[in-house]
Design a protein around this nucleic acid. Structure first.
Lengths: 222, 222
DNA sequence: ATATAAATTTAGCCTTGACTAAAATAAAGT
DNA sequence: ACTTTATTTTAGTCAAGGCTAAATTTATAT
């Protein structure tokens, strides 16, 4: 049986395989860190998942999802992102609160629930933080955006996606006036990996640290 | 920590203590049967719950909830019934599908979720099947309705509540045209515990077995 | 090339919440 | 009152999924 725990492991492995920050090997320790468990626990689970062919496991070398594992991962991610969007659109949740709630709900909803909120939201393909939402068949449109931290001074860009890893950071981005689809302009870039000063549509200019700018994904304008 | 399992046990014990069908002792075997576990498993859990003062336990004699246990039970029931109503009102779920979905969701939602759907529903006090919804402080208005099976021939009554125990039965009731607040009239009552023939507002007369009529609760009219 | 450090796995243990089989207690019938 | 039956509890297992400590393997630095 596919437990909640298994769903979470597969989901995290998928994100590590396809994520923008770590396009490399999914090792035991990285997985353990993201799951909030010890490396020993992760090894145990990995062995179990390999046993039932949800992933390929080369001891000391890391894991790669197999077909069946990826399917479950994508279903879980679909649930998560649909729920996040629903919480945000239908229940008025704020940007930074949807992730924690969806984290638990994603394992509890039925197919019927999934279908109903999907229909209600108009079969969305982009989630609350700009992530692609896999469709019912597990098709997902991987995106490649620039990071705001890499944009040159004077350039303008549209915010397409933000990292949802840290709720405090999301709250801060919200304070600054950022939202999906909004236009921003880089006014200033301090040297030596210094902060960038940003002009957000209809807001005062604000100065952001690179750490934050690194987690904001944009499309250049013109 | 209060596990999902503990919440379920406490909820079921509460319902057994206050339910209309069994206004008596909550014994190990009855509890086990409702929980879908063996009597031995129920004994184990009972001992654990007694240990942490969630209930009073007299071996071989049954259990009674203590204050703290009742509080948790009522919180869980509140979650369950608010979710059921939300599924029905906001997502278009049918009468018979809400219980199963709520059964899992009730353990997964946060206080924020509870508050948001409560507000969205206008702080309801009656659930999707007519059950009272405990308020945030655990206050609940116990109801006493007549059973449709006990109503005399010729009498009219308003459907106030239906049992949600059997989805198939709910589906059947729905087919017959029953819903909360609808007026019905007992046309015929066959002798020797025979079926009753019912006229439901704007429907053809239908003949119902006593088993079903026993699970329909009404207020007499006039 | 080898010694040290870092990452990974193994071994063994714990808790939760089920289960079965056997023992103990309570209830019922003659 | 005593025997039979039904209910309940006890004792001992099991699977999941964590953990720590020790052993092993891989990577790194002289």
């Amino acid at each position: 049986m596919i437990s909640q725990s298994i769903e979470d492991y597969l989901k995290v492995i998928y994100k590590l395989q396809h994520g923008s920050d770590a396009p490399n090997q999914v090792t035991t320790s990285i997985l353990a860190e993201r799951m909030g468990v010890t490396a020993a626990s992760a090894t145990n689970m990995i062995k179990k998942l390999a046993e039932v062919n949800l992933l390929e496991y080369a001891p000391y070398r890391g894991v790669v999802l197999r077909e069946a594992g990826e399917r479950i991962a994508l279903e879980t991610i679909r649930h998560h992102r649909l729920i996040e969007l629903y919480l945000s659109e239908a229940l008025g949740y704020s940007w930074d609160a949807v992730d924690a709630e969806a984290e638990r709900l994603e394992h509890a909803i039925s197919e019927e629930f999934e279908e109903r909120i999907d229909r209600m939201l108009g079969h969305p393909t982009i989630g609350a933080h700009g992530e692609p939402i896999p469709d019912k068949n597990g098709q997902i449109e991987e995106q490649t955006y620039a990071r705001l931290s890499d944009i040159d001074r004077g350039q303008r860009a549209v915010v397409k996606r933000v990292s949802d890893r840290d709720p405090a950071m999301l709250r801060y981005m919200n304070d600054v006036g950022l939202q999906l689809g909004i236009m921003v302009k880089v006014c200033e870039k301090a040297p030596f990996k210094g902060p960038i000063t940003l002009l957000v549509e209809a807001h005062q200019p604000r100065t952001l640290g690179l750490e934050v700018a690194h987690h904001i994904f944009v499309d250049l304008v013109r």
